[in-house]
Measured scan of single mutants.
Amino acid sequence: MIFPGATVRVTNVDDTYYRFEGLVQRVSDGKAAVLFENGNWDKLVTFRLSELEAVK
Rank of each mutant, 00 (worst) to 15 (best):
L35V: 06
V10M: 02
K43N: 09
L23C: 09
T7Q: 08
G30S: 05
D42M: 15
K31C: 12
T46M: 12
L49D: 03
D29N: 12
R19I: 03
V8Y: 01
V10D: 01
V55P: 03
N38G: 11
F3S: 08
Q25D: 04
F20G: 04
Y17Q: 03
Q25Y: 10
E37C: 15
V8L: 01
T7W: 15
W41M: 11
G22T: 01
P4C: 08
V24M: 01
W41T: 11
E53R: 06
R26F: 14
Y17F: 10
R26E: 13
F36W: 02
G5T: 03
K43S: 10
L49P: 03
F47T: 01
S50N: 10
E51L: 04
P4R: 08
Y17K: 03
G5Y: 04
Y18D: 01
F36N: 00
R26A: 13
W41K: 10
N40D: 12
K43V: 14
T16L: 13
F47M: 05
R9D: 01
L44C: 11
V55Y: 06
Y17C: 07
I2M: 04
N38F: 15
L44M: 08
T16D: 10
D42S: 15
A6M: 15
T7N: 06
G39K: 08
L52V: 05
K43R: 12
F20Q: 12
N38Q: 11
V13I: 11
M1N: 11
V27D: 00
D29F: 09
R9M: 08
L52M: 02
F20H: 11
F3L: 10
R26N: 12
E51M: 05
V13S: 10
S50R: 05
D15C: 14
V13C: 08
R9F: 05
A32K: 00
S50T: 10
V13T: 09
L23I: 15
A6I: 12
V55G: 03
P4E: 08
A6H: 06
T16W: 10
S50C: 10
M1C: 14
F36R: 00
R26D: 11
F3E: 09
K56D: 13
V27S: 02
V55H: 04
K31T: 12
N12G: 05
A33K: 07
G39V: 09
R19W: 08
D14W: 11
L23T: 14
